[in-house]
Amino acid sequence: MSLKLKALLKSPWVFHLSTGSCNNCDIETLDCLTPRFDIERFGMLLVGSIKHADVLLVSGSCNRMSVERMKELFEQVPKPCLVVAIGTCAGSRGIFKDSYNCPVPLDKIIPVDVYIPGCPPKPEAIIAGAVKLIEKVGSTL
């Protein structure tokens, strides 16, 4: 397990999953790939298939329909897999706490390793969060 984790940290491939977000968090995540921020420096790559992913970036406030999909996808990720909650929505549902269609917060559904607060978090914050994640997991090895 730990060997796998160690290998994973060299070049974490991320899959980005939106569960009823307002899109800002998703765009800021994508922004990290573009020339100004260029998160690929750290070996991170956004992949199109969940089967290739090591890290799951979740944004949004988990609405009823997408939660079912998310659980399915979480089953399919090759383990070990790290989960990052991007934005206030994924952290605590923020303004959507009382919505009839967002019943349960993300961390009651799947285990979350890192929270990146902000609405939306700036790309710098997302990068800092990613680096912290690598440090945190690295220190437990």
Partner: peptide, 10 residues
């Protein structure tokens, strides 16, 4: 929905 959770989580 009786399973709904209206706390902040985290």
């Amino acid at each position: 929905d009786i399973t709904a959770d209206r706390t902040r989580g985290v």
